[in-house]
Simulated assay, not measured.
Amino acid sequence: MSWLTPWTSFFKRLVHVIAKPMKRDRGHGGMMVHPYRGYGSSDEVFVMGRVFRQAALGRAIPRRGILRDTADVTRRIFRRGLANAQVDIRIGKNELTLATDRDGYFDAHLPITHSLPIDVSWHRADIHVRAEGQSPVRTDVEVYIPPPETDLLVISDIDDTVMFTGVAEKLKMLYRLFVRKPHRRTAFPGVASLYQALHRGETEKAERPILYVSRGPWAIYEMLEAFFQLNRIPVGPILFLREWGISLRHPWPRKAEAHKRMLIDRMLTLFDELPCILIGDSGQHDPEVYTEIVKAYPGRIKAIYIRRVDKDPKREQAIQRLHDELADTDCELVLAPDSILIAEHAHANGDISARGLEAVIRDVKEHREEERREARGC
């Protein structure tokens, strides 16, 4: 049954990627610290992460192979956050101490009272964690602070904007990611070159901050990091919206839209001198949330790019009404069927280079040609 071979490979590779973060403890278990990439300005930085306890591996489990990966996935499912762990964070000479919440998460807001070097964008935050009955843990994480000459902030949704999230498309994406060449068609066509162009700017020398938000759970953070790297999408802090842990106290995931608005408000306040571009999709509440933001921050939002993910006439009419609402502002809402239209508008606005536009057009055309070859059975 040769048709099973690629799916067996798919399953093994998927399990291995999901299990990979567990291998840091070499099977010993105990307290673990997983910080998420941070972001900030010359005045303050934000660093998030989780402290949790995980079980040790039994001696009978081999060091590698599908059995070890399956055991690590099981350990990952059943790991539990450590509440009230003490977290000490230091970046340069700036320090902060705080405690984890009842799910083991910490969300540090660290004022910068001692200046950091301005000739680098990525800074190291050292983290020291202590908890009763556990051995102390030291780790570090990168924190992105834009250079002084930065001229634009980009905030992008992830789900159905950068990557497919429908059930059928997600299965296709995972198959392509773990069976076929990983850089091919695991994101929307032209996304990598579009975000690279936005990151580099019209001069192609800029290092603009790109901040990503998602309605997904923190548990898939490592998967998304791998996805971004494999697809050559400019790396940035990935800011998830909510913890999906189900409990008797919170039987349902926390509402996404309000939390997304809160995160974007935080970013616009943090980078209060930068104009901003917002990127989302037509399938959820992005157009409505982004329109509210334009009204709340007059003159700050240069453009809203909405990727069209369906052809529902009623939805398109609703988005057109939002477009009309913004007619008297400095911001235009663009409903785009593909990355090319977004890139053309951004180039016309002076936000990406001609070379960046050409790269997006080339990548989308190559994708379409590949689809035609596949349809012909080549």
Score class of each variant (00 low, 15 high):
Gln317Ile: 10
Leu268Cys: 03
Tyr305Gln: 02
Leu274Ile: 05
His285Phe: 14
Asp310Arg: 04
Cys276Ala: 13
Ala327Gln: 07
Phe271His: 11
Pro313Arg: 04
Ile342Ser: 07
Pro337Asp: 09
Asp281Gln: 00
Leu333Val: 03
Ala303Phe: 04
Gln320His: 12
Ile342Ala: 15
His323Val: 03
Thr291Lys: 10
Gly283Tyr: 05
Phe271Cys: 04
Asp272His: 12
Ala303Gln: 13
Glu332Ser: 15
Cys331Tyr: 08
Leu333Tyr: 09
Leu341Ala: 13
Ile277Phe: 06
Asp286Val: 05
Ile306Lys: 08
Ser282Glu: 01
Glu273His: 14
Lys302Asn: 11
Ser339Tyr: 08
Asp272Arg: 14
Leu326Glu: 01
Gly280Arg: 09
Ile304Tyr: 00
Leu278Tyr: 07
Leu268Met: 05
Leu326Val: 02
Leu274Asn: 08
Gly283His: 08
Pro275Ile: 04
Ile319Ala: 01
Lys314Val: 12
Pro313Ile: 04
Ile277Gln: 03
Leu335His: 04
Asp272Phe: 06
Ala336Trp: 00
Ala343Asn: 13
Cys331Ala: 09
Gly299Met: 03
Glu332His: 13
Ala303His: 11
Glu344Val: 14
Val309Ala: 00
Tyr305Met: 02
Val334Lys: 10
Tyr305Asp: 02
Phe271Ser: 00
Asp310Glu: 02
Ala336Gln: 02
Val334Ala: 02
His323Asn: 02
Tyr290Gln: 09
Gln284Val: 03
